[in-house]
Simulated scan of single mutants.
Amino acid sequence: MKIIEPSSTLEEQINGMELIKKVERAGRTCYKSEDQISEVTAMNFVKKIITSGHESVLEHEKITVRVVCDRGVSHEIVRHRIASYSQESTRYCNYSKDRFNNELTFIKPYFWEDDSKQSKEKYLIWKSTMETIEKNYFELIKLGAEPQQARSILPNSLKTEIVMTMNLREWRHFFRLRTTLSAHPQIRQIARPLLDKFKEVIPVVFDDIEY
């Protein structure tokens, strides 16, 4: 059994300035103000369309991200409908094979990480349960069960990888929902660092979203 932390990575190198310049070129069509485009106008233009609520212009550009999380978090991610997803399939992945190191991988539940006696007890219960699930999963496979049958005992804590592509407007929607205190703590663990990364590489578009 393997226990890992969740993570996210950009699937492509992003040139943030070029991205918002493309948004500007598309958006200025609405006003037929293409003659006003210069090397320094994109940031102000994009800031103005966000302030005015004209966010449909942001749909012209997209970003693809690879997320490693647990199955429970992935169920929340795919509820964002204006997106494309490719996810690790428990129907076809046989975790008893060498390419999976003959083990199940689980995402560590970080909310039981403090040093209190109660948290330690909760974590040990979780860990013991995952060990039992792994043992029984491999026993089912050994008895001839197909992965799509054996997966019925796999838990929300099972690690999954999901590649997700959203346009910039939908990413804004995603971050507004998934970085707040009302969001599930494990999806915040993914969304907040990812928002920080987006702000780092893309000017203006996400600056107004705070957590």
Score class of each variant (00 low, 15 high):
113 E>F: 12
25 R>G: 06
82 I>W: 09
99 R>P: 01
63 I>H: 15
113 E>L: 15
121 E>D: 10
91 R>K: 15
90 T>R: 12
29 T>A: 11
78 V>W: 13
86 S>A: 13
20 I>N: 04
89 S>N: 04
41 T>P: 01
115 D>W: 02
55 E>L: 03
46 V>W: 09
84 S>P: 10
115 D>P: 12
45 F>K: 04
84 S>M: 11
70 D>A: 05
114 D>E: 09
123 Y>R: 15
31 Y>H: 13
73 V>I: 15
120 K>D: 08
122 K>L: 04
96 S>V: 03
124 L>I: 10
122 K>M: 11
23 V>A: 09
65 V>F: 01
79 R>W: 09
109 P>T: 01
70 D>C: 07
81 R>S: 12
30 C>W: 07
83 A>I: 14
62 K>N: 13
124 L>W: 05
68 V>W: 06
94 N>W: 05
54 H>V: 03
74 S>Y: 02
79 R>A: 12
103 E>F: 07
49 I>E: 00
90 T>P: 05
79 R>G: 09
112 W>H: 15
48 K>A: 12
102 N>F: 02
62 K>H: 06
27 G>K: 00
105 T>H: 08
57 V>M: 05
51 T>F: 07
70 D>V: 08
30 C>D: 00
114 D>T: 01
31 Y>S: 09
57 V>Y: 02
113 E>Q: 07
55 E>M: 12
87 Q>S: 13
66 R>E: 04
60 H>P: 10
55 E>T: 13
67 V>Y: 11
77 I>A: 01
28 R>S: 03
41 T>A: 05
66 R>G: 08
63 I>C: 08
25 R>Y: 10
71 R>S: 11
121 E>M: 15
51 T>H: 13
88 E>I: 07
68 V>R: 06
103 E>N: 08
96 S>N: 00
41 T>G: 02
118 Q>C: 09
34 E>M: 00
111 F>K: 04
48 K>M: 06
21 K>Y: 11
76 E>M: 15
88 E>F: 14
111 F>Q: 07
119 S>E: 02
99 R>I: 07
32 K>M: 12
29 T>D: 06
60 H>V: 11
19 L>S: 04
113 E>K: 14
122 K>F: 08
97 K>T: 11
64 T>L: 11
90 T>G: 14
36 Q>A: 07
109 P>S: 14
47 K>Q: 15
26 A>K: 10
49 I>T: 00
73 V>A: 10
53 G>P: 01
25 R>A: 00
34 E>C: 04
106 F>L: 14
63 I>D: 12
67 V>W: 12
103 E>K: 00
61 E>S: 03
100 F>R: 08
49 I>K: 02
67 V>P: 08
99 R>V: 04
80 H>N: 14
35 D>V: 04
81 R>V: 14
48 K>F: 05
109 P>M: 14
99 R>S: 02
86 S>F: 13
79 R>S: 14
30 C>P: 00
101 N>D: 13
22 K>P: 05
52 S>D: 05
34 E>A: 06
118 Q>G: 00
52 S>T: 02
35 D>G: 08
28 R>A: 12
92 Y>T: 01
46 V>D: 01
100 F>N: 04
101 N>Y: 06
114 D>V: 14
116 S>Y: 08
27 G>F: 03
56 S>T: 09
109 P>L: 13
88 E>W: 06
109 P>E: 11
83 A>T: 08
22 K>V: 01
72 G>H: 12
22 K>Q: 14
114 D>S: 07
65 V>T: 02
